[in-house]
């Protein structure tokens, strides 16, 4: 951060010259032009690619959702008919509730566990490197690996049920609580936790490493217990990391398709699963409904993230804005 500041001020400062006014001004102007060109050319590839591959698809979806899809002989543009159809359907409203539920609960749990783990491993502990390796392993495998694991462990005939049977807690597979394919979504949320506790852990670990241990230590010498030192000194310092990781975790959970599809109930299910179902209906003239669905998912997710960020900024400002 500081580096770029320096460079910025240096470039903005008047450039001394002993050639006299006109020539000096020319050099300045040429330098400004060259600088702008460098910025533009540097940013062009990344921004260009994302405009085509990221903004483009969203515009296609938006236009279709508003009734312009000539390939399906739908030319009703502009109409909010498809949005209306989706919004009044009870399935949509149920899906909103379940999507929020599947997104928020794991976010809270994984944030709490991930922060605790990061703080614990930031202390003097033997084999921290080995431990850290295993804590990061779930992070680098696809969510589907987590899905397979949760399946192997928590299915009706899975290993957990077998262990419970072996120690006499249950007597048949029927007595094992339904974890997969249930509206409670435990299976889905377990997969999220498997991936996201490690995610939170590494983000917060990185922030903690930057903060250093002195803040906590000085708080301890000033009479703060471990808990108080964490609450008043460490937590405010790592809050940006906690907010970032929980935000990304929420954003992911909100839009995840394969996990609720594989391990959730058929009904009620989440918005992305419903959206793809609509997309695959045989009657292609109803595809704009699917497009309306995904636009709504995007907008809803955006609203939640915006409100969360705004709440955080307010809280930050109330503390004096650091």
């Amino acid at each position: 951060m500081r580096r770029s500041d320096n460079v910025g001020t240096r470039a903005a400062a008047p450039i001394p010259t002993d050639h006299g006014g006109r020539v000096g001004l020319d050099i300045v102007r040429r330098r400004v032009v060259r600088r702008r060109l460098a910025i533009l050319l540097g940013l062009a590839p990344a921004i260009g690619v994302l405009l085509v591959l990221f903004v483009g698809p969203l515009i296609v979806a938006l236009v279709q959702s508003l009734g312009y899809a000539p390939i399906y002989r739908v030319r009703a543009f502009p109409t909010f008919e498809y949005y209306a159809t989706v919004l009044v359907s009870p399935r949509f409203r149920t899906a909103v509730v379940y999507t929020m539920y599947y997104a928020v609960v794991p976010t809270i749990i994984s944030t709490a566990l991930g922060v605790a783990l990061a703080v614990a491993l930031n202390r003097r502990i033997r084999h921290a490197r080995v431990l850290s390796f295993f804590f990061r392993l779930p992070l680098v495998v696809p969510y589907l690996v987590g899905a397979a694991m949760v399946g192997a462990l928590f299915a009706g005939g899975g290993l957990v049920a077998r262990v419970l049977y072996a120690i006499g807690v249950i007597e048949s597979t029927g007595e094992f609580p339904r974890i997969l394919f249930s509206a409670g979504g435990w299976g889905v949320m377990l997969v999220y936790l498997f991936k996201q506790v490690p995610f939170t852990f590494i983000i917060v670990s990185a922030v903690l490493a930057g903060v250093g241990s002195e803040y906590e230590e000085v708080a301890r010498t000033l009479g703060a217990s471990k808990t108080k030192a964490f609450r008043y000194v460490v937590l405010p310092r790592i809050m940006p990391g906690v907010v970032t990781s929980s935000l990304l975790v929420f954003a992911f959970n909100f839009q995840s398709y394969e996990i609720p599809y594989l391990l959730g109930a058929t009904f009620p299910t989440t918005l992305p699963v419903e959206a793809l179902r609509r997309f695959n209906v045989p009657d292609v003239t109803r595809r704009p409904e699917a497009m309306a669905y995904i636009m709504l998912i995007t907008v809803l997710s955006g609203i939640v993230l915006f409100l969360y960020l705004r709440a955080y900024r307010r809280w930050e400002r109330s503390r004096g804005g650091v």
């Binding site: 770029s4 500041d5 460079v7 910025g8 470039a11 600088r35 702008r36 460098a38 910025i39 940013l43 990344a46 921004i47 994302l50 591959l53 990221f54 483009g56 698809p57 969203l58 515009i59 296609v60 979806a61 279709q64 935000l247 990304l248 954003a251 909100f254 839009q255 398709y257 992305p272 959206a275 793809l276 997309f279 699917a290 497009m291 995904i294 636009m295 998912i297 995007t298 997710s301 955006g302 993230l305």
Partner: peptide, 28 residues
């Protein structure tokens, strides 16, 4: 560099992580 609109550029380059992949995927 520091330039006008830098925050917007940074945000734009980050947004694909947050926007639902299903939305991008279907449009794509």
């Amino acid at each position: 560099y520091r330039f006008r609109g830098k925050a917007v550029v940074e945000f734009f380059l980050l947004v694909p992580v947050i926007v639902p992949q299903i939305a991008v995927g279907m449009g794509m």
